[in-house]
Design a protein around this nucleic acid. Structure first.
Length: 111
DNA sequence: CGATTGACTTCTC
DNA sequence: CGAGAAGCCAATC
């Protein structure tokens, strides 16, 4: 558990409800654009036990990137429950719902 | 301790 | 414009 990982965690938690963020966005906001792999890893390790909004993390195309069909379906349901519109194919309207790295940083600065 | 992996991203052909 | 391959960093096995 490095400082970078903790920043990633905080950044993920900084994503406001009703919005989504891409891996690259999280990585940039965390301070290391190359850490998007670690974002994935963090989600793998923490999503099971921590209170992370893993459901708000999707790929840059706006599609749910989870490989497990059940997990992807669950994510879709959770997003819809937050007010995020998800298309049939599991796609989110990123133009509306994707939060920028600056916004995440601002939220972290605010807290 | 070294090799592998991983819910991605981006550039090139 | 679409498909394919490389890149990347840290945690896990």
């Amino acid at each position: 558990m490095t400082a970078l990982t903790e920043r990633i965690l905080k950044t993920i938690q900084a994503v406001p409800e009703g919005s989504v963020a891409s891996y690259g966005t999280i990585a940039r906001a965390a301070g290391n654009p190359r850490a998007l792999r670690q974002v994935v890893r963090v989600l793998h390790s923490m999503s099971a036990s921590r209170d992370l909004p893993w459901q708000r993390i999707i790929n840059k195309k706006g599609y749910i990137a989870i490989k497990d069909p059940e997990g992807a379906f669950l994510q879709k349901k959770l997003l819809e429950a937050e007010g995020v519109f998800v298309s049939e194919g599991g796609r989110v309207d990123m133009n509306r719902f994707e939060v920028t790295a600056e916004d995440l940083k601002k939220v972290q600065a605010g807290r």
